[in-house]
Amino acid sequence: MITLSLGSPREFSMRSRLLLFVLLALLGIPSSADAQVDTFQFDTEEQQQRFRHLSDILRCPMCQNTNLTGSTGGVAEDLRREIHRMIMEGLSDADIEQFMFDRYGDFIFYRPRLTAETLLLWFGPLIFLFIGGIVAYGIVRRATPMSDAGVPLDKSQQERLEKLLENKR
């Protein structure tokens, strides 16, 4: 922790508040100020939740490392408006995701759909883990007999061993 010569208790609380703010900023914990979303009217809480969820999981095609919730890009603004419209028209989340997919493809999803094309993306790491496991298993299995007993000693070795044990006594 940071130690500084501290002034009055009031100053301390200012400081810790500032510190907290800096830490949160560094951690990238989103505060409500990041969201670009709160200008839409919904009939129900559930609709609003769905809107939040969809804008969180969909990626802005222009500013590629933000979701629709966080993006100030023009196209993100338009897409949020479209999501709002479709929710109000009673379309399901699956319909809305399909709408986005038809226009922007897998890129629009942070979590790509499971299709033939994305199969390697989804299971590639598992395949590598599996290969690594096999290799590790092979190495361990081959290494074991070397360190283990069970290799019979020949006659001279046996005699030497007994002599050594004798001496010990």
């Binding site: 023009g74 196209v75 603004e77 338009d78």
Partner: peptide, 13 residues
Amino acid sequence: ESGRFGIDLGVYG
């Protein structure tokens, strides 16, 4: 003006 047609084209800028 609204960018609505752009969305149908998959335009992003």
